[in-house]
Nucleic acid binder design. Structure first.
Length: 278
DNA sequence: ATGGCGTGTCCAACACGA
């Protein structure tokens, strides 16, 4: 089975790409069983439940006006027979980090009862961008990271099979940056952010992408400007972190650059991890 | 050279992204 994350930069604009991508993966006999979306940029009443359900997928969304917004989409055919609607397919849902009371919708967690394997708890995450290390938004980012770490410590105690997927807005190492010298110390790569990423790893997660041999300069985001994609001037800031029990079952982790080549694309590409069922 | 492009919103000029 495969789980994925994709920052779509407006679900209203990108819904055709999401459906096309899911159907392409099915046609290749490599369906996406769960897809965590970020940057919906729409309120819950505007979420396209009907269109996605018609394509064969159930959704749980945590949206807000204009900014942020996250969702979890599951393939109906991949669910255990006990799951028939959102209430039975997304168990123990949590919106936002419990310690966070502000309006920013950046976290959605749910336990998914997949057929043929033990349930998996998924966290769809859109980490704050941070803007620049000397900004108020950067202070918010570091505070948010601290609260995330505290919350995930509890989640890991309660869920052996836990995956954290999404747009982390952190490039963990220089190998994840197209021009490390130009970016040294800047937002997305600065030491406090990378330390926070490492602290997440230290809780008991593995960066699924780095468990496998990968082509150099593999990225998940490219700036719309300056022909960033054509020059492969990108960063790897979208990640799938796996708890120890899921790490043992993970057999592959890749970035699919193809949707970034489509007309009017998101600036992010989807990232995918393959999990062996038990 | 801190812009460039894309999206959403108070529909026009700005906020925000990374």
């Amino acid at each position: 089975m495969r789980i994925a994350a994709w920052n779509v930069n407006s679900l209203k604009v990108r819904l055709p790409h999401v459906i096309r991508w899911l159907q392409d993966q099915e046609a290749k006999q490599q369906p996406i069983d769960a897809l965590c979306l970020q940057e919906l940029k729409l309120t819950d009443d505007k979420y396209p439940h009907q269109e996605l359900e018609a394509a064969g997928y159930l959704s749980l969304a945590a949206g807000q006006k204009t900014y942020n917004g996250v969702a979890i989409i599951v393939r109906k055919a991949a669910l255990a027979s006990i799951a028939s609607d959102a209430a039975t397919s997304f168990l123990k849902p949590i919106r936002n980090i419990p310690a966070n009371t502000d309006e920013q919708q950046r976290i959605l967690a749910a336990t998914i009862p997949f057929a043929g394997t033990k349930p998996i708890r998924l966290v769809s995450a859109y980490f704050p961008n941070g803007q620049s290390p000397d900004s108020d938004k950067f202070i918010y980012k570091l505070d948010w990271l601290s609260k995330l770490q505290t919350w995930l410590t509890e989640e890991l105690q309660q869920n052996q099979r836990l995956a954290l997927l999404g747009d982390f807005n952190i490039a963990p190492a220089d190998a994840d940056v197209h021009d490390p010298k130009a970016w040294e110390g800047q937002n997305l790569v600065s030491p406090p952010e990378r330390n926070a990423f490492q602290e997440l790893i230290n809780l008991g997660f593995s960066d699924s992408f780095r468990m496998f041999e990968q082509a150099p300069k593999t990225f998940s985001w490219w700036d719309y400007r300056m022909m960033g994609f054509r020059r492969n001037a990108g960063m790897r800031i979208d990640h799938i972190l796996l708890s120890e029990d899921l790490k043992e079952k993970c057999s592959a982790s890749v970035v699919d650059k193809e949707p970034r080549t489509w007309e009017q694309p998101s600036d992010h590409a989807p990232v995918i991890a393959t999990i062996q069922k038990t």
